[in-house]
Amino acid sequence: MLVDIISWICLISGGVVAMIGGIGLLRFPDFYARLHAAGVTDTLVALLIVLGLALQSGISMLTIKLFLILLFLLFTAPTATHALARAALADNVRPEGTDSGSSEKTRGETSSNT
């Protein structure tokens, strides 16, 4: 019974955090800020929902597969985020709060690269 209640709390809060992340994706002002909002939904939501579901099925094949999914998500999410940030940077989408010197440097790097 207690396990059920913990599981419900995990699932519901997972849903709530997912929606907060979605709101962030809509509200945040520029691309780099939105990356962080996407990070919220990628990490904590996956953790909470997988934990909530795993508590439902106990130790079983299903739980092992759930944790494999979580492992894949936690390993691939930062890789995808990093790839996105790098591609945007190389395409001269400037983050707020960079000085012009570093943007000069990026431009040089991009042109020598292509």
């Binding site: 780099y32 990356l35 990070g39 919220v40 990490t43 985020t81 990093h82 940030a85 790098r86």
Partner: peptide
């Protein structure tokens, strides 16, 4: 990168 709020560029 995994902790929201910071992203390695």
């Amino acid at each position: 990168t995994l902790t929201p709020g910071t992203v390695t560029l």
